[in-house]
Design a protein around this nucleic acid. Sequence first.
DNA 1: TACTAATAATTGGAATTATCAATTTTATTT
DNA 2: AAATAAAATTGATAATTCCAATTATTAGTA
Lengths: 307, 307
Amino acid sequence: MNIPTLRQLQFLVALGETGSFSRAAEACHVTQPTLSAGIKELEDLFGVSLAERESRGATLTHAGEIAVARASALLADAHALVQAVTSAGALFSGPFHLGAIPTIAPFVLPQIVGQLTRRYPDLKLYLTEDRTHRLIDQLRARTLDAAFIALPWEAPGIEVMTLFDDEFLLAAPAGHPLSRKNGLSPEDLQGEDLLLLEDGHCLRDHAVSICRLKTGGGREQVAATSLGTLVNMVAGGLGVSLIPRLAADNGLALGPDVAIRSFVTPIIGRQVGIAWKSGSPREAEARTLGELVRQQLRAQINAASIT
Amino acid sequence: MNIPTLRQLQFLVALGETGSFSRAAEACHVTQPTLSAGIKELEDLFGVSLAERESRGATLTHAGEIAVARASALLADAHALVQAVTSAGALFSGPFHLGAIPTIAPFVLPQIVGQLTRRYPDLKLYLTEDRTHRLIDQLRARTLDAAFIALPWEAPGIEVMTLFDDEFLLAAPAGHPLSRKNGLSPEDLQGEDLLLLEDGHCLRDHAVSICRLKTGGGREQVAATSLGTLVNMVAGGLGVSLIPRLAADNGLALGPDVAIRSFVTPIIGRQVGIAWKSGSPREAEARTLGELVRQQLRAQINAASIT
DNA sequence: TACTAATAATTGGAATTATCAATTTTATTT
DNA sequence: AAATAAAATTGATAATTCCAATTATTAGTA
């Protein structure tokens, strides 16, 4: 079955409202013949006369009245559709699936989750914590819209916005020689028992590659499953470790048994970024998230410089 | 605000259903580029990406899902509109205002009202009984859709369908000389006291003009207000009268005091027709009504010939 | 890595359609 | 009868839709 054009229905509604072909045409910003033709098409389509033409304008027939009533409703619905879809496409409306690796998640997500849910009431935010390659897979499968990951990381088809440098700090047991040494440099790590996260965490890979250490021998087999346990192991005197400043600044290593020292020349162990699938319609939101994290960081730095 | 085309919405719904631009295009009987362009227009209009293009078809975004849902509803409504308006334009649906002159109404309306309301349940039939010129005015003002009137009657802008000839019969008091005379002819009326309806009834005019009688003098001042009283006056012996066969056949003058005689050569006093305003969208219905009356008449004649 | 298959985007031109200005028709009013 | 007002008609033009052919992109496969 054929259906009319919304435009023709607009014509018809205007005709009903004005009671005149000419004035209706004016209201629709077309000429009278155009509107006339539109109405005629409707009449042909319906097989019904919609208006009686008189010397003093036009009057709707019974069928015309019905048509106008329904057409008005339809047009209103069409406008509502535009509204709904437009706002559905606004930033952070509807479901958003956000991921982060375990060494970033606890230090970044809490703050921005609060902000987001406050600023975007229509947002349904789903969080996932997993290792980088799993997150990337999920981005590709579109079960994730964006993810905070640590760089460098090569991933074709994935775009990344770099957010900030995250330098490595030394975590050593209180009283350890390195905790007192001035001018700490990477070479000082030689010979130390270096504690690392278990395999699969990108933080481990970054630490290894940056410090140019060969992983081999018995001691390095000791591997923690999370940053928290890693710090605990340091506190227990099992060795030293490298932890990202992001974690340290967020209160990971507060305690009397662990000393945190920074290197003279900062060792940029990793960068933090937000990633999304190339061409994703959520890119704008991902970038907005990135901006949000940057602002968060600036606020932290300002707060630190004040105290 | 701009609104989308129903066509574009059909494209979108098809895209949602098939999950593929190509297959959606096929379903819509257009080529893939055409459909692609349609979707892109929607996306521009909404300022939102509606579908993610992949190598294996397309998947709707959140906004796309919402758009498809609403678009489906809108299209369904559009179809319903076509249905509703089309059937609203069917014969005898909605209000129909029907008029008739007093000398026709009681003999025609009862039967067809029954038939109409039975056959067209959607019909709201309004009846008006008035004199011809008032009915004509109402047709012109479109407060009436059609009217049964007696012809001849000149009325510019009014179209008439002639239904049947209605000959005049003589009504005379029982025992009156004319009630026994053979070979009755119009000339026999000369010298008789001719009773007529009051001024304004077309029946009177027709009788006067057909019988070429001058109205003048005291006796003709006697005027009845309806056919019923006219017959009663004849029965009372006040004079003779002419009544239409339509009325006589429908039992108007049944009674021992009145004799009904037909003329040798039938005097076609009037014709009955149905009238409507030229160009009225109700013309088809008016003609249908006319047919209905004709059938009615045929049925009556058949019944009469059987008995 | 190159090749193939599947799919969507792009492009350019042809056919269709929509639109308008001018005119005509029709009915009403003066 | 002339003037007025409104809708229909007409014919030319402008806009648009639509398609065929091509290109681009991605994923799967040898």
